[in-house]
């Protein structure tokens, strides 16, 4: 996502960014990509709710 895309997205959401801020956010999100690429991949079947189910299973050991 580049600077223009960030500015346009936030404009659509009704938020006006001060000068320079869109570029900073774009850089911040771009930096996240490589970081997240090194994190363990979820399994194909994993759903967002899996964590809650997994956690609650611990209540009946």
């Amino acid at each position: 996502m580049n600077e223009d895309a960030v500015r346009t997205l936030l404009q659509q959401l009704g938020i006006t960014l001060p000068p320079g801020r869109a570029a900073a956010i774009a850089a911040e999100i771009a930096a996240l990509g490589p970081k997240l690429a090194t994190t363990p991949r979820p399994a194909f079947e994993d759903e967002p709710v899996t964590f809650q189910v997994h956690a609650s299973r611990a209540t009946t050991p």
Binding site: M1, V6, L9, L10, L13, I15, L17, R21, I25, A26, E28, I29, L32, L36, T39, P40, R41, P42, A43, D46, E47, P48, T50, F51, V53, H54, A55
Partner: peptide
């Protein structure tokens, strides 16, 4: 807060889906 508004959905969903596996690990 502005950074969170621009977060790609794929990043967020990756973070939520990866949690069960990381808890197990």
């Amino acid at each position: 807060m502005q950074s969170g508004l621009a977060m790609p959905a794929m990043h967020y969903l990756h973070a939520v889906r990866a949690r069960a596996g990381l808890l197990a690990e």
